[in-house]
Design a protein around this nucleic acid. Structure first.
Lengths: 157, 157
DNA sequence: TATTGTTATACTCTATAACTATA
DNA sequence: TATAGTTATAGAGTATAACAATA
């Protein structure tokens, strides 16, 4: 016979109380992301790097001369949403918008020396914060997690 | 000697171009969540169920007589943010706020029959949509993913 | 006609602070 | 004093639609 459960007012015909949400990938993704992004902000917030600004700078550093349209596509957001992000990075002198002679609609984005340095510092801080936050996961588990998340991303929506 | 890379304008001293973001758990969590939640909205959007409303209804159905404060704590959001969600669910007659005699500050939340039925339908639809969206993952991979995400959640912020 | 960068606008989600009525 | 529910407010983040310049 099954033991009486102690969980607060468990109900009806489920195997585990509250199991519905716990078994959904979407719900668990959201909850996990909230924890990791909160830690990200705690780590880099004082440097004025939100996740979006950090991600955009990362790609500009790693793909100098990228355009805003290309960057938006890589980040999975709309072109219009990128304007404020680039404005901020340019205002802080971490990158420049450079006219491209052969197509005058386009402006290539290139990081400044200061941008490259600030990015390297931020990247190292983020890596350190993730390593500490996820220290309950073995290196293998962390790699497995990344592999599974990338597999979802390949779904390409 | 290393072969020349073909990736669009790869830069400097990284092993893989653009590898920085790809190796961060936070970035991959975010990208994966965007895909899953967009599919959620496509599936349940016409029924007027956003992720938040769905999650709240789920817990009210599974924990009848729960209070708003308890619910907020379980969902990891602020009490104030729950008011609009409960207003909407009550307005759609999917749950009721019931006064609790022994503590007149509190209102117990109980699902209506219609609320239970609507939730069961929505839950089944979400499960089906997740199964289809994540069909590239084996059952074992999906379980591993849930286990790892729950492990991050246990970090408890 | 199509595309790039841009602006204007609105909507979702969430947090903070303060109020009220109870305890 | 402390807590439950509530309101007001503000700030991210994102999307859609339209526009000017250019292709």
């Amino acid at each position: 016979m099954a033991a009486q459960r102690k969980i607060p007012t468990p109900s009806d015909d489920e195997q585990r109380a509250g199991a519905d949400l716990e078994d959904l990938v979407g719900y668990n993704l959201k909850r996990a992301y909230v924890i990791v992004s909160a830690d990200f902000r705690r780590t880099l917030g004082m440097d004025g790097f939100g996740p979006r600004v950090f991600s955009a700078l990362s790609l500009v550093v790693q793909y100098p001369n990228i355009t805003q349209s290309e960057l938006a596509r890589m980040l999975g957001i709309e072109r219009s949403g990128l304007v404020a992000i680039i404005d901020e990075l340019e205002g802080r002198k971490l990158l420049k918008r450079i006219p491209v002679p052969r197509d005058r609609r386009v402006q290539a984005l290139i990081p400044t020396d200061e941008g490259r340095a600030a990015y390297a510092r931020a990247r190292d801080a983020v890596r350190a914060h993730e390593a500490a936050l996820l220290s309950d996961l073995t290196a293998e588990e962390r790699e497995t997690l990344l592999t599974l998340l990338r597999k979802i991303r390949q779904t390409e929506d």
